[in-house]
Amino acid sequence: MPGLVLVATPIGNLGDLSPRALDTLRSADAVLCEDTRVTGGMLARHGVSVTLIPLHDHNEAAQAPNLIARLKSGARLALVSDAGTPLVSDPGYRLVRAAIAEGVRVDAVPGPNAAVMALTLSGLPPHPFLFLGFLPAKEGARAAELQRIRAVERAGLAATLIFYEAPHRVPESLAAMALAFGEARPAAVARELTKLFEELRRDTLGTLAAHYSDHAARGEVVILVGPAPEEAAVEGALEDQLRAALAAGLSLRDAAATVAEAMGLPRKQVYQAALALGR
Rank of each mutant, 00 (worst) to 15 (best):
residue 2 P to G: 10
residue 2 P to W: 11
residue 4 L to Y: 01
residue 4 L to W: 02
residue 4 L to Q: 01
residue 5 V to H: 11
residue 5 V to E: 11
residue 6 L to Y: 11
residue 9 T to D: 00
residue 10 P to A: 04
residue 11 I to Y: 09
residue 12 G to A: 05
residue 14 L to P: 09
residue 16 D to Q: 07
residue 19 P to Y: 06
residue 20 R to K: 14
residue 21 A to L: 06
residue 24 T to F: 04
residue 26 R to Y: 09
residue 26 R to G: 03
residue 29 D to E: 13
residue 32 L to F: 12
residue 40 G to L: 02
residue 42 M to D: 03
residue 43 L to A: 05
residue 44 A to C: 00
residue 45 R to I: 00
residue 46 H to A: 06
residue 47 G to Q: 05
residue 47 G to W: 12
residue 48 V to F: 02
residue 48 V to H: 03
residue 51 T to G: 06
residue 51 T to A: 14
residue 52 L to I: 03
residue 54 P to V: 00
residue 54 P to C: 00
residue 55 L to C: 11
residue 56 H to C: 07
residue 56 H to V: 04
residue 59 N to A: 12
residue 62 A to S: 13
residue 64 A to G: 06
residue 75 A to P: 08
residue 78 A to C: 13
residue 83 A to D: 07
residue 84 G to T: 05
residue 87 L to A: 03
residue 91 P to L: 00
residue 95 L to H: 12
residue 95 L to R: 10
residue 97 R to N: 10
residue 98 A to D: 03
residue 101 A to R: 14
residue 107 D to R: 15
residue 113 N to P: 02
residue 114 A to F: 05
residue 114 A to K: 12
residue 115 A to I: 08
residue 117 M to H: 05
residue 119 L to V: 10
residue 119 L to F: 11
residue 125 P to R: 10
residue 126 P to R: 11
residue 126 P to I: 05
residue 126 P to C: 03
residue 127 H to C: 04
residue 131 F to D: 04
residue 132 L to H: 01
residue 133 G to P: 07
residue 134 F to T: 07
residue 135 L to T: 09
residue 136 P to I: 07
residue 138 K to T: 12
residue 139 E to V: 13
residue 140 G to E: 13
residue 144 A to K: 15
residue 145 E to T: 15
residue 146 L to C: 12
residue 148 R to V: 07
residue 148 R to E: 14
residue 149 I to R: 15
residue 151 A to G: 14
residue 153 E to S: 01
residue 155 A to S: 14
residue 155 A to K: 15
residue 156 G to E: 10
residue 157 L to P: 00
residue 160 T to K: 11
residue 163 F to N: 10
residue 163 F to E: 10
residue 165 E to Y: 11
residue 165 E to G: 10
residue 167 P to K: 06
residue 169 R to A: 06
residue 172 E to T: 13
residue 176 A to G: 07
residue 179 L to G: 10
residue 179 L to F: 01
residue 181 F to G: 02
residue 183 E to W: 03
residue 185 R to C: 04
residue 189 V to E: 00
residue 191 R to E: 00
residue 194 T to K: 02
residue 202 R to F: 00
residue 204 T to C: 07
residue 208 L to C: 08
residue 209 A to H: 08
residue 211 H to W: 12
residue 213 S to G: 14
residue 217 A to P: 12
residue 218 R to Y: 07
residue 218 R to A: 05
residue 218 R to E: 08
residue 219 G to C: 07
residue 220 E to L: 08
residue 222 V to R: 00
residue 222 V to S: 03
residue 227 P to H: 11
residue 229 P to L: 04
residue 231 E to R: 15
residue 232 A to Y: 12
residue 233 A to K: 14
residue 233 A to R: 15
residue 234 V to G: 01
residue 234 V to K: 14
residue 236 G to P: 01
residue 236 G to K: 02
residue 236 G to Q: 02
residue 237 A to W: 12
residue 240 D to F: 08
residue 244 A to Y: 05
residue 248 A to S: 15
residue 249 G to S: 01
residue 249 G to L: 01
residue 251 S to A: 04
residue 251 S to K: 06
residue 253 R to V: 12
residue 253 R to G: 05
residue 255 A to G: 03
residue 259 V to D: 09
residue 259 V to R: 06
residue 260 A to E: 06
residue 261 E to T: 13
residue 262 A to V: 00
residue 263 M to P: 08
residue 267 R to W: 09
residue 268 K to I: 04
residue 269 Q to R: 14
residue 270 V to S: 01
residue 274 A to E: 05
residue 275 L to F: 11
residue 277 L to V: 08
residue 278 G to T: 05
residue 278 G to D: 07
